[in-house]
């Protein structure tokens, strides 16, 4: 084994802990973390050439999405006017419209793919707010991941597997009546160039929420207990994202592909509990 190249990494991480309000009965504390990391390939094999086969490009991050650029969906009137003939001659109405990057009048995998984004986030951040009022405590953790793309296999597959996959009606696929410029028709050849639908996988999530109440000492003493806390805690309560499908973090391999039996959505959970010490 030998090194085949050189990369450059630059990252910053910043943490800010604040006590916004600190009174006897009411406290509010915040903790904010933000980090960003930029990596890029500086050299490969020493010859200044990109390695397209491995999707490594000098000056770009190690993980990139290299694909066609979808610029819309072929519409009936465009096909009637013959606009596809010197662009993508095999196109039919409802097909994915890809950019003819080199302008040779056809779509070819060799000439019309470009870098569509990076697979690692440009930055991630987290914010925890903790509020305390007498025996009550509310803690909310919000996280955000921004600036990355993932191939959306659900959009690429365009199939609900006879009801085995949820969500497809939400998409709004192209039909002669529904002239979507974003989602192709359900024709089996509508995506014949195997465009993988790299999609923005950024999200902001209310990751953890905990609400608790600790009984005053005199009450627990009266019950001959050390301390009593009642709590409710929720995980993955709400996610804000443009991602279509289960979740931008969940895997959803198409049926038949490796590990497809391990597909599992992001779960939301709520737990109620009581802590008692003796």
């Amino acid at each position: 084994m030998s090194n085949i190249g050189e990369t450059e990494n630059f990252g910053v991480e910043f943490t800010l802990n604040t006590h916004n309000i600190d009174k006897t009965n009411f406290k509010w504390a915040s903790s904010f973390v933000i980090s960003t990391n930029k990596n890029k390939i500086v050299d490969l094999y020493g010859d200044g050439m990109d390695d397209i086969g491995n999707r490594w490009f000098i000056g770009e991050p190690v993980g990139v999405v290299y694909d066609y650029e979808m610029v819309g969906i072929w519409q009936e009137d465009e096909i009637e006017r013959g606009e596809h003939l010197n662009w993508d001659p095999e196109a039919k109405a409802g097909d994915v419209k890809l950019r003819d990057v080199n302008g040779d009048g056809k779509i070819t995998p060799e000439n019309d793919k470009t870098i569509q984004g990076q697979t690692t986030p440009k930055f991630t951040a987290g914010l925890t707010n903790t509020f305390t009022y007498k025996g009550f405590t509310l803690s909310v953790f919000i996280t955000t991941v921004q600036g990355l793309k993932r191939n959306n296999s659900l959009l690429a597959a365009r199939s609900d597997e006879m009801g085995r996959r949820n969500f497809t009606t939400e998409v709004g696929y192209w039909t002669p009546e529904n002239r979507s410029n974003e989602y192709s028709s359900l024709s089996k050849s509508a995506n014949r160039n195997e465009y993988k639908y790299p999609s923005d996988a950024s999200f902001t999530r209310i990751k953890d929420v905990t609400f608790s109440y600790t009984f005053p000492q005199r009450l627990s003493d009266a019950m001959h207990l050390g301390a009593v806390t009642l709590y409710a805690t929720g995980r993955n309560i709400l996610t804000f994202t443009k991602w279509k499908g289960w979740d931008p973090e969940a895997d959803m391999a198409q049926r038949g592909f490796s590990n497809y039996e391990k597909n599992y959505p992001m779960t939301k959970s709520v737990v109620f509990g009581m802590n008692i010490t003796f």
Binding site: M1, N3, I4, T7, N9, N54, V62
Partner: peptide, 14 residues
């Protein structure tokens, strides 16, 4: 496979 391994090495080259 070897390339994948090499890619893994590349990411920690700093």
């Amino acid at each position: 496979l070897i390339y994948t391994a090499a890619a893994a090495a590349l990411t920690v080259s700093s």
